[in-house]
Design a protein around this nucleic acid. Structure first.
Lengths: 129, 129, 129, 129
DNA sequence: GTGGTCTAGACCACC
DNA sequence: GTGGTCTAGACCACG
């Protein structure tokens, strides 16, 4: 389920954060669904529990999940509290990536295809339960 | 001209690499144009020359610039050696960013606007000399 | 084990890169085998850790090793991503060296002997684990 | 006639040395033939005369040319004073290159082809005048 | 413990 | 003057 690249220069916990974000964004993990426990996931992936812990903490800070003491971690309702700051950041990033893609010769058509794929992949919060 | 975030978790030299890439991609720095010298830029940004040097070295390995001992560092002719590997990576990244943007509620219209901006910003190699 | 020539015009870190490449190519260092730590090797060779680091970084960019923060540096699986560019370079170099050898009076027989030695010395990836 | 790569990381004077060696080895420059003067060559290649000077000095040290004060520089008779030291070095280098080539998957057949090419390219001293 | 980044300051090679 | 290498020593991030 999680494919981590232990050889990557990107820290494992960051990879985990990204994977989780993807799973939530793609609707695989739905609102209020419980995440695997730190220890369970650590064992499953055979990595240090501290690493999982760190990833969960970051996801919480980003507003993707919330944690209940003694209960576990759960998926948050998103796309509501999107402060404009986050939006600005992702827009900036998107523009930068688009520019680089165009510069490297990727055609507008290809980009539109990617956009369709992305659009199809989305499962927004309101559709989920 | 260069705004570095010394507090960022992203290493300074990497920020420099990104900035330079942007400047080259956007045509601000043109083919064979000389970059600021290692020492000069170091003084201007009040960071260590070795850090600049590291950034320049990386840019050289990435094919964005070339360095002549005793002469200086210069912008390379790009968009020629685009190996497919790079293309694949940027496409993947673009798709991921698009998905996240759409998920966060950015409309297709806004994205198209960004794409126009990006397209206008591009100055490709053949326009430069 | 490592014989460095501190007087040589070739930078120490480059000598290190070459030595390591040889050790990997000759199968002395096998796939996923851990390299000596930056600090350990630095002490053993009585050179600065930064120099080792630079060599390891270069080996990583060349695809010969991979590094895990907090874990160490390890030999990569090779002979898979041989892009044709590298092949062209080594062929050119080989032809030049052969020409020089022949010119200096080394016989075809001697060269064939060297080729046998080289061939025997090779330990390719598939033999290693 | 001389194609120098000003962008290369290899110093210009070293490139010059290599080119000259090739020209001598390939018999383009024959025994006792006069080399272009430092100033002429400098102008032709539009590089600094000091750089030419340095290259000639090195070629002289290597035994490829000799210089007569007030006369100029001339091609030496080679393949006679090949001390065994030089031979050992080139053999070592050849073996290393062969090993790397084989490791990278270049076939014995291809290497034999390169050897034929090299052999055909050679014009030894005794054939030259 | 590991690799990775950064600084301050020195020296070299090149042109 | 330029880029390039190296050292000594500090601090951080990761697991």
């Amino acid at each position: 389920m999680f494919e981590l690249d232990l050889r990557s220069r990107k820290p494992i916990y960051e990879q985990l954060v990204d994977k989780m974000k993807q799973l939530i964004i793609n609707g695989v993990l739905k609102k209020d669904e419980q995440l695997p426990s730190v220890r369970a996931l650590a064992q499953q992936l055979s990595i240090n529990p501290n690493t999982i812990q760190k990833a969960y903490r970051e996801l919480e800070m980003l507003g993707f999940i919330y944690s209940l003491k003694g209960k576990g971690s759960f998926v948050n309702q998103l796309s509501t509290q999107n402060n404009s700051e986050e939006l600005k950041i992702i827009k900036e990033k998107l523009k930068k990536t688009l520019t680089e893609a165009l510069f490297l010769g990727i055609s507008l058509e290809e980009i539109n295809d990617l956009m369709d794929e992305a659009n199809r992949g989305i499962k927004r919060g309101e559709d989920n339960d």
